[in-house]
Structure formats: structure tokens, C-alpha cells
Amino acid sequence: MSDVSSPVAVFRSVARPPAPSAVSNALVFGWRAVLKFRHVPEQLFDLVMTPIMFTLIFTFVFGGALAGSPRDYLQVFLPGILVQTVTFNAVYSGMGLSADLDKGLFDRFRSLPIWSLAPFAGLVVGDVLRHLIAGAIILAIGLLLGYRPEGGLLGVLGGFALLLAIGFGFGWIFIVLGLLVRTPMTVMTIGFTFLFPLVFASNIMVDPATMPGWLAAFVAVNPVSLMTTAIRGLMGGGATLGEVAAGLLAPVVLTAVLAPLTLVLYRRQ
């Protein structure tokens, strides 16, 4: 860039290539999500360490007291920690979106002649990868510690499919938050304030039978409990269609309500 004449060549020489398809646009954003894993390994650490710690602490510290032995507890707890991990991880895409919006990156995306929802498709790709990586690590640790999925391989696959559906559904909450709130930390704070009671007042860690009646009543209808019951059933064998349908209810409703809302908020910006 030492003289005026040199850049002219590069400015003049570019013929516009044919416009790419919406799918191609979405894949580019998916590629971006994968690059983020490589460049920001810290997020992978957060993503994986928290559930590992939870699994180890709950299994060995509380397992004996809650279920007779750590191993028996793991049988009940492992599907639950998967649900917890996925709902907590959903916060990340909201934080990432909020950071992108704050920095003006989305201004560039929105001024490009591309499919306007492609950036969100990329977020979803990132989410799916995050959920799969975290889920696989937790399952591996569980297997090492003695967890045995009685539903077999099909049960585990079914459980993971439901897990992704849960992550997808809950992801919308944080995408909407990310669109509304311009500071990633605030998205995280609001996200966890909302998620903590939902996750702890559920059947993930303990049997609600010992809880006071009012709480047990809430736990019974808490979508997190319903999702956990469904995944337990799938991975442990013996899930009923009703259980799986109840587990899918929250993700389906969230997607149906929040995906269109996301569109409206994004277009209105």
C-alpha cells in the first residue's frame, strides 16, 4: 500500500461471482462457529469442566446418601446432568450473538446481499456442536464411572436426539435475550437467574418425593423434569410415547413462539 496505483488493480479486477444459495450462506456461518471452537478454546473448557465437576461431585458426595451408592445414583443422575448441561450451554449462543451485535459485526452481515437468517443458522450449528461435544464427554465419563444405559445404543441415540431438540428449543430463549440485551455478561446473568430455579427445582438431582408439596407440584410440571424423565426413559429403556411427547413439549413450544419473535426483533433492529 505504499503507492496509490497498486490498490487500483485489486479494485478493478473483481467480477461478482454468482449469488450463493441460502444453504451455502448458512454453511459459511456454521464454519465460523467451528472456527470459534479453535480460536476460543476457553469456551470449550467452560463447557466441559462444569458438567464434569457436577457429575463427579454429585455422584461421589451425594450419591451414596441419595441413592444408596454412587453407582446407583449415577444411573438416575447422568441423563439429568445431560439436560442440565445442554440448557446451561444454550446461554452461550445468546452471549455470542449479543457480543456480535454490540461490536457491529451484524451491521456488516445485514448490509450483505445474503439470506437474512443465515447468521442464526450458524448459531444453531455452533449450538449443536457444543451440545454434542459436551454430551459425549459426560456420557464417556459416566460409562467410566459405571453408568450402564439399559436402553442400549438405540436408547442412547434417541436420548441424544431429544437432547439436541432441547438445546435447540432453549437456544431461542437466549437468542431473543441476545437480540434485546447488548452486553454478553447481562445475557449470562439473566440467563442463569432464570435457569437455576428451573434446573434445581426439578427431578434432575433428587427424587421430588421428599420435597414439600407445593414444590413437588412445581417439579412435576417443570419442563426440565419432563425432559429429564423422557431422556431417562430413552437411555434407561422403557420410555413411553407420552413421556417423550411431554419432554418435547417445551422445546417445540419455545421454537414455535420464539423463532418468529427472533425474526421480528432482528428485522426491526
Binding site: P17, P20, V28, W31, K36, K103, L105, F106, D107, R108
Partner: peptide, 26 residues
Amino acid sequence: MTGQFASLDDDLTGRENLLMLSRLLG
């Protein structure tokens, strides 16, 4: 448009930023 605040992805490299846009544009 080049906005007032850098509309780049800080986490990616310079080349990856340009690659991303090149691919988005076809």
C-alpha cells in the same frame, strides 16, 4: 459499508474474516 465500529470478528484471523465474506458473496 464500513461502519464506525469495526465490523469484524475479533476471534477469527484477518484471513478468516475475508474468507468468510468471500464465501458469503459467492
